[in-house]
């Protein structure tokens, strides 16, 4: 269920229209944590279809399959249980790792011209560090729809 707005968001406003949505923009979310995925997907679903990969190998398969339809990729910074963490996968996706340093399952990935958002539950990472590695934004889990949309809008406007 899409969260319903139960009352006007600001003085003087009527209730917004409510309609179940479909066919929304596609986002890949890579995180092994079920709870985090559920919460994020729930928050984003009003405007985004969220597909999920749990680990690095699955993420690469999903990118190969859906890269032409994705509007953003959200990667957990730590990615426990994977060979690659979110930072290394970001660097690979941005073509910043020599082929010999890339595990076979992550080689020859299609070019990905969409924002990469690194997500974390920790306070110990800095936004600027993520940018250095080729990420476009660092966000706290669970990701809020308005934060993701603002980041994607900024990305689009910067490329105009």
């Amino acid at each position: 269920m899409i969260p319903r707005v139960s009352r006007p968001p600001a003085p003087g406003w009527t209730l917004p229209p409510t309609t179940e949505t479909d066919g929304r923009a596609l986002v890949l979310y890579v995180d092994v944590d079920d709870g985090s995925f559920r919460e994020t997907a729930e928050r984003l679903r009003a405007a985004y279809n969220v597909i999920r990969a749990q680990k690095d190998r699955e993420a690469c398969d999903a990118i190969r399959m859906y890269h032409q339809h994705l509007v953003a990729v959200l990667l957990d910074v730590d990615m426990p249980g994977s060979i690659l963490d979110g930072i290394l996968l970001t660097r690979i996706l941005r073509g910043r790792v020599p082929e010999m340093g890339v595990p076979p399952f992550a080689r020859n990935l299609p070019e990905l011209d969409v924002p990469i958002v690194l997500v974390t539950g920790s306070e110990s990472y800095a936004h600027e560090d993520m940018r250095r590695y080729g990420g476009d934004r660092l966000m706290q889990k669970p990701v809020e729809i308005h934060k993701l949309t603002l980041a994607l809008t900024d990305w689009h406007l910067a490329r105009r």
């Binding site: 066919g23 929304r24 923009a25 596609l26 009003a46 405007a47 985004y48 032409q68 339809h69 994705l70 509007v71 953003a72 809020e144 729809i145 308005h146 934060k147 993701l148 949309t149 603002l150 994607l152 809008t153 689009h156």
Partner: peptide, 10 residues
């Protein structure tokens, strides 16, 4: 606003 301004599907 986040919903309204979200990118459209490819």
């Amino acid at each position: 606003l986040g919903e309204l301004l979200a990118p459209v599907p490819v």
